[in-house]
Simulated assay, not measured.
Amino acid sequence: MSDAVMTRTMGTGEPVRGSPVRRMSASDQIHHALRERIVSLELKPGQNLSRGETAEFYGVSQTPVRDAMLKLEQDGLLVIYPQSKTEVSKIDVGQARETQFLRLSIELEVTRRLAALVDKAPLASTRQILSRQENALQDGDLELFAQLDRRFHLSLCEATGVANLWRLVAARSGHIDRLRNLNLPEPGKTANIVFYHRQILEALEAGDKVAVEVAVREHLSGTLAAVEEIMARHPEYF
């Protein structure tokens, strides 16, 4: 990590060295790596994180690890007990609802603007992402599927020049993302996501503002509509 190479985990939890990252500090890289492991549920709520062991795992000093953990605490994904321990936080449903409210507000305006476009060329990237997501669904690749899910929505924001707003929401989305990842393996969930992505894109390409608003509202309400069932299946996460 000292040579600015990201270390990450794959399936087994073993560290794998990736491509060089030159524009991120060590603490930013640690923050990103730990956040991904928390959101993906590799690191589960209540799990203890040792600063020393984490530093050893990533091959860095404890200083960038400390800074990354403080930022993750601000994100609501870690709970730090001074002079005691650091734990992955439980999923905060209230915070998830707030983030979803913000995301819905932004995406409704984004899709309204895209539906009004005469030139649909900005949607080409979204169409390509959807095609790749459909392939990931067929292959049963949930990790890639989830990545493309995020890319689909980001591409809509990019098409309207408000990608930074998406990143602002994404930074606050740790709790809703964990809820979504708990629900993703449920039968029919991934197919349902692709269905609504098709509905959204087709409505945008047709310039149908009413249809796209209905599709966005129904799509983004799915996870929180199932929150009681998710909590009943996984009470240890809350």
Rank of each mutant, 00 (worst) to 15 (best):
Ala55Asn: 00
Leu108Asn: 02
Ala211Ser: 10
Ile106Glu: 13
Asn135Ser: 12
Gln62Arg: 06
Arg113Trp: 06
His219Asn: 03
Asn48Thr: 15
Glu56Ser: 12
Arg66Val: 10
Val65Glu: 04
Leu179Phe: 02
Ile230Gly: 03
Ala68Arg: 02
Asp119Leu: 06
Lys209Ile: 01
Ala163Ile: 11
Glu53Gln: 08
Gly46Phe: 11
Asp139Phe: 11
Gln47Trp: 03
Arg103Gln: 13
Glu36Cys: 10
Leu201Glu: 02
Leu72Lys: 10
Val16Trp: 09
Asp208Cys: 01
Arg172Asp: 11
Met69Trp: 12
Arg233His: 01
Gln62Ser: 14
Leu168Asp: 14
Glu134Lys: 07
His219Ser: 07
Glu218Arg: 07
Leu182Gly: 00
Val16Glu: 12
Gly46Asp: 08
Arg150Thr: 10
Ala226Asp: 02
Glu36Asp: 11
Met10Leu: 15
Leu148Gly: 06
Asn181Ile: 11
Gln128Tyr: 15
Ile230Arg: 02
Asn181Glu: 14
Pro82Ser: 03
Leu137Arg: 01
Leu72Thr: 04
Thr190Tyr: 07
Ile230Thr: 06
Ala170Val: 04
Gln128Asn: 11
Leu117Pro: 01
Ala146Val: 08
Arg172His: 08
Leu34His: 02
Val88Asp: 09
Ser61Cys: 05
Pro235Asp: 04
Ile230Glu: 01
Gln62Val: 14
Leu154Thr: 02
Ser40Met: 02
